[in-house]
């Protein structure tokens, strides 16, 4: 395939997914927005005033970046995991791509780009909704954008690993429920790692979502629990590992070919 043909194949995979995402917006966008509104009501109007300020900002302003990350991470992950798994397991239409000359890296890029479109769109929508509930300082817009892209990239890649490897429908529900959700809630969405006892701090530092939330929050509020260099190094390494793992799975056909 020529580079132009590979680009066409990539565009086909992405277009198909993006058309679907926007066509079924009540399923893809609305739930996260409703959930976020509920969080903002609870933390902004009900609990926020009692908790006080963190780093000179109201509590709701502190939790907004974490709640945006929550939406981005879960949507990016579930979009790719579900789309790929359905194509593999139900209609088996993943064969349409597997029999074609589309190389593995184009398949990975296409599915991941679809997940990123959904994740980033959700992230932006939740930020817009949050602006109605809380003042949102935008200290470093480039860092906000960088971490928004990184989070959707990493969890789209993770979702693809899950979608490729899952052997039953349980396989794609277990990971979000028992792995992703605890990681998100223990990743500093609702608290600062500095407020934790040393042992719990170590657990938090082992959670990749902590680095996403912390960096993203730094973009808004101008302070972070850990240096951005460390966060970007951890996330860069994680991205490289996930890309390699996806490439290996598609290349060898593990979980796809008999």
């Amino acid at each position: 395939m020529s580079p132009q043909q590979k680009l066409t194949s990539f565009y086909t995979i992405v277009r198909k997914d993006v058309v679907r995402i926007f066509r079924i917006w009540p399923q893809t966008f609305l739930p996260s927005i409703i959930t976020s509104v509920l969080y903002f009501l609870v933390f902004g109007k009900v609990l926020g005033g009692r908790i006080g300020e963190i780093g000179g900002h109201p509590y709701i302003t502190f939790v907004v970046p974490g709640l945006v990350m929550l939406a981005v991470v879960t949507n990016s992950f579930s979009n790719v995991a579900t789309t790929f798994f359905q194509a593999k397991f139900f209609a088996r239409n993943i064969d349409e791509i597997l029999v074609s000359p589309t190389p593995p890296w184009v398949i990975i890029s296409g599915y991941v780009a679809g997940g990123m479109v959904r994740g980033i769109t959700i992230g932006l929508l939740v930020i817009i909704v949050a602006a109605f509930f809380s003042p949102l300082p935008l200290t470093h817009p480039f860092i906000v954008l960088l971490f928004l892209i990184l989070s959707s990239l990493i969890f789209s890649l993770a979702g693809l690993v899950n979608g490729i490897y899952a052997k039953s429908f349980d396989g794609i529900t277990i990971v979000p429920t028992f792995v992703l959700t605890p990681l998100v809630y223990l990743g500093g969405v609702f608290y600062s790692a500095q407020a934790l006892p040393p042992l719990w701090q170590k657990f938090t530092f082992a959670d990749p979502i902590f680095y996403l939330v912390d960096g993203f929050r730094a973009g808004f509020m101008g302070f972070s629990d850990i240096s951005l260099g460390v966060s970007l190094s951890v996330l860069g390494l994680l991205t490289a590992i996930l890309i390699a793992l996806n490439w290996y799975l598609i290349r060898t056909g593990l979980g796809l070919r008999q």
Partner: peptide, 26 residues
């Protein structure tokens, strides 16, 4: 293939055109 393996929710034209896309056909 022996088994029907297209996405049943896609329009017929899209099933065919998308397959062309995977072969690099605009």
């Amino acid at each position: 293939p022996q088994e029907i393996n297209f996405n049943p929710f896609e329009k017929c034209i899209d099933v065919v055109v998308n397959q062309g896309g995977y072969y690099g056909i605009p």
